[in-house]
Amino acid sequence: MVLTVHDVTKSFPGAEGDVPVLRGVSLSLERGETLALTGESGSGKSTLLHLIGGLDRVDSGSITVAGREITTMSDTDRAALRRSDVGVIFQQFNLIPSLTVEANIAFQARLAGAFDADHAARLSKALGLTEHLAKYPEALSGGQQQRVAIARTLTARPKLVLADEPTGNLDEATASEVLGQMLRLVRETGAALLMVTHSSSVARRMERHVNLSQGHVV
């Protein structure tokens, strides 16, 4: 099992006391499996994704990623986990604007000390980025930038890919194309994919589908 989430709760402070966002969520994901996490706005999808990525801490419950319990880990250890085992793809791309496309693609793998130039070249080619490698992100369209973000994540060969509405900023045709490329490459690398999405059409292309409503899996 690449991911196990067990009875996780999470609240945020509000004007009238703490507001519960996740109320005992449990789910699991196996190697190579793809899962869509859907739900209305405020249902806790992105919060759950951040907790799994070690970007935030649970109130209670446990999360195991690649066999390691992360809820008791220090910030430094969770950072190390993100470098080596987890890849996060954001809706806003979050590329480093002052690095070239090529440097951006290599970035996470270099951080993890696991850069493979051939693998990066294959991914770049597969995502149609070869001719843009020397450019800076600002020179690319939104779809191209998201492809760079996908390449950056997959170059590091993570065991678990977390994607937060990766096609939310793209038009329908581009979104479909990018999604197709991402799913194909994730399967090729054998990683598990957990994708937060609003779109039912995107969710349908995943192997499994979990819907969150008011902090519960329904």
């Binding site: 970007l55 910030d75 950072a79 993100r82 470098r83 996060v88 979050n94 480093i96 951080l111």
Partner: peptide
């Protein structure tokens, strides 16, 4: 933010 999300400790 990106660096931290990608695993560089604060």
């Amino acid at each position: 933010r990106t660096l931290r999300a990608l695993g560089v400790p604060l």
